[in-house]
Simulated scan of single mutants.
Amino acid sequence: MSALSDRRERERVHRHQLIIAAARELAETEGWEAVTTRRLAERVEYSQPVLYSHFHGKDAIVSAVAMDGFGELATHLRLARRADADSGQALRAVCRAYLGFAAERPALYQAMFILPTDLKFASAQTPPPLRAAFDEFVHCFPPDNPRRELFAEVVWSALHGMVVLADSGRIPAEGQQERLDFLVTRVAGVR
């Protein structure tokens, strides 16, 4: 590859990340309804055709934001799990970290779990960042447990339900710690 080709590729990657960052920032400040190709083009100071050369519409932008989010979530959960791995409280720490991540980044969480994307969950096509986030739950269960992926899936599903129901006001936020304790001790069987 020539120096010119290298530079063009770096510029293309930079534009790609700039568009993702602008979409995320706009969604966090004004909601996903405000994220349009016109608004993004204005924010990143590129034409709409340049945006379309990177993404084929809003769903593709949401998917790219979600993919970045799964990478961040995996790192966030890994740090929480490792901090409490020796105390036997890894699952509780990962669950708390997950709930905190969702609360601190609501628009990102929407991109990852609520808005339509082409990301595949629980399949051979599951992207590595998504799988890495899920594996942090799996690692909270003993390796000799043949059903630890099922346990992790049920815990993640319950947490997701807690996030969505609390966010919509259907369950009170102040009961979150009690729900988390119930999930970890009764459903997952971790003391």
Score class of each variant (00 low, 15 high):
Leu4Cys: 01
Ser5Gln: 01
Ser5Val: 04
Arg8Ala: 08
Arg10Ser: 12
Ile20Gln: 03
Ile20Val: 12
Ile20Leu: 06
Ile20His: 03
Ala23Gln: 07
Ala23Glu: 04
Glu25Thr: 11
Ala27Glu: 12
Ala27Ser: 09
Glu30Arg: 12
Trp32Lys: 05
Glu33Gln: 15
Ala34Pro: 05
Thr37Ala: 12
Arg38Phe: 07
Leu40Glu: 02
Leu40Gln: 11
Ser47Tyr: 09
Ser47Val: 09
Leu51Cys: 07
His56Tyr: 08
Gly57Met: 09
Lys58Val: 13
Asp59Gly: 06
Asp59Glu: 15
Ala60Tyr: 12
Ala60Ser: 14
Ala66Trp: 00
Asp68Gln: 15
Asp68Phe: 06
Gly69Phe: 13
Phe70Arg: 08
Leu73Asp: 00
Leu73Ser: 04
Leu73Ile: 00
His76Phe: 02
His76Tyr: 09
Leu79Gln: 08
Ser87Lys: 05
Arg92Phe: 04
Ala97Met: 02
Tyr98Asp: 07
Tyr98Pro: 10
Leu99Asp: 08
Leu99Gly: 06
Leu99Trp: 05
Gly100Phe: 06
Ala103Lys: 13
Ala103Gly: 12
Ala107Gly: 12
Leu108Phe: 13
Ala111Leu: 01
Phe113Asp: 05
Asp118Thr: 15
Lys120Pro: 03
Phe121Ile: 13
Phe121Glu: 14
Gln125Arg: 13
Pro127Trp: 11
Pro127Ile: 14
Pro129Val: 10
Arg131Leu: 15
Ala132Arg: 09
Phe134Thr: 07
Asp135Lys: 06
His139Val: 00
Phe141Trp: 00
Asp144Glu: 14
Pro146Met: 00
Pro146His: 06
Ala152Ile: 06
Glu153Trp: 04
Val154Leu: 10
Val155Pro: 08
Val155Ile: 15
Trp156Ala: 15
Ser157Lys: 01
Met162Tyr: 01
Val163Phe: 02
Val164Tyr: 01
Leu165Met: 12
Ser168Lys: 08
Arg170Glu: 06
Pro172Gln: 00
Glu174Thr: 12
Gln176Gly: 04
Arg179Lys: 13
Leu180Val: 00
Phe182Ala: 07
Leu183Ile: 09
Thr185Tyr: 13
Val187Met: 10
Val187Ile: 14
Ala188Phe: 10
Ala188Asp: 05
Gly189Ile: 07
